[in-house]
């Protein structure tokens, strides 16, 4: 049993850097996939619907840029 543990430790020692190496490429890759297949298409879709999620546009028609607020803050949630 002790021998087995030692063997596993040795294997882990060599596998760990390989895992880290793969992780270094995999996480940016998965982030890029999300960006190209979700973020950009959603952005294009919203533009086609003429939606301005961040209210970026300057509006000559509007008299004010204030956004009125009714809801009270809650303290229980993180959102």
């Amino acid at each position: 049993m002790r021998y087995f543990k030692r063997l596993l430790k040795k294997i882990f020692k060599y596998i760990q850097p390989v895992g880290r190496f793969i992780g270094r490429f995999l996480s940016p890759l998965s982030l890029l996939l999300v960006y190209f297949f979700i973020v950009i298409p959603t952005g294009i879709f919203l533009k086609l619907l003429n939606k301005d999620a961040l209210n970026i546009k300057i509006s000559k028609k509007k008299n004010t840029y204030w956004i009125s607020r009714k809801e009270e803050p809650n303290f229980e949630e993180q959102f």
Binding site: P28, L31, Y35, V39, I40, T42, G43, L46, A53, L54
Partner: peptide, 17 residues
């Protein structure tokens, strides 16, 4: 942050990453 990336995409990829 997500609203910003969606609104400005494809600008913002560096900040996103």
């Amino acid at each position: 942050l997500m609203d910003t990336y969606v609104s400005f995409a494809p600008r913002g990829i560096r900040s996103y990453l």
